[in-house]
Write a protein that binds this DNA or RNA. Structure first.
Lengths: 145, 145
DNA sequence: AATATAAATGCAATATAATTGCATTTATAT
DNA sequence: ATATAAATGCAATTATATTGCATTTATATT
């Protein structure tokens, strides 16, 4: 799902200044295919990037459609790189998410969000689907023991 | 979706003590078919019920399967009465939610969550689907003006 | 009806998370 | 090389959630 990303290029495309903090955030998030939570990012980058700056970078990335934000059950924000079709106006985040209740990781699955018909009068812009359960890795862990 | 509820009975069924605070919370949440947020509840009940008590009541109701909690885009908890089939062990919250981005209300729609096939190794226990857009009421408001 | 007791509530204090204002630093256009 | 507009870091503030404990309340038992 996550192809190699080029932070410098991404920043240029969105007319954002190229700072080492912004590059680091993109690098860190691109490391894994699973979404990473704000607290995890803070733990990893806390020595290099101020807490407040991290908030600001994440917000601007979300606004620009560079990252998408997935809320987990605890109301914690998780971030993943958007597919290239995302824009500031519209997030084409039309795959389902899998939130492992053991390790808390959020996976962007390569499964499309199935269509649902809205009741009369309701107009849906985006539809998010999140499955909760046990991920591949944690299922294997159980077998081992 | 929300039939008349009987707080006294609900409390009895779950072996919870009958207190006026607990009754008030259930009454308030049952007032409307849309889910109500923790901050809204706090605003409405703040004079009668202590902030901390409200948190505790909401938590216990969720644990017991009396309420289900829906996180909105901002990581704010919203609560709605569970259908009767819910239990402490498993929330059968298998309808989709509609989160209006204008009035922020969360509707429990009478639309089933469509089935999605998980990748090999992933086992899903529950699946949540939330549609974001404009609700009936807010769509009508626009037409008026 | 009175009462023992286990649980729920409210308050104060603490912890955690997010936001704002402002001085300083940094990127980039010229 | 430098001007300037923007980003960063720090301090302070605000908002949100949790914990401990004394007091109050519900209910089971007599």
């Amino acid at each position: 799902m996550n192809m190699k990303i080029d932070p410098t290029n991404i920043l240029k495309e969105h007319a954002l200044k190229h700072t080492k903090q912004r590059v680091r955030v993109l690098e860190e998030i691109a490391l894994d295919t699973v979404a990473i939570s704000q607290p995890e990012l803070e733990k990893k980058l806390g020595k290099e990037i101020d807490r407040v700056t991290l908030y600001r970078i994440l917000n601007i990335y979300e606004d620009k459609g560079i990252l998408h934000r997935i809320m987990d059950m605890n109301g914690t924000a998780n971030y993943a790189i958007c597919s290239s079709s995302c824009s500031a106006e519209h997030h084409h985040d039309e795959h389902i998410h899998f939130n492992c209740t053991t390790c808390n990781k959020i996976y962007c699955l390569d499964v499309a969000v199935p269509h649902s018909t809205m009741p009369k009068g309701f107009t849906a812009k985006t539809v998010n689907t999140t499955a909760y359960g046990t991920c591949e890795k944690c299922n294997l862990e159980v077998k081992k023991n």
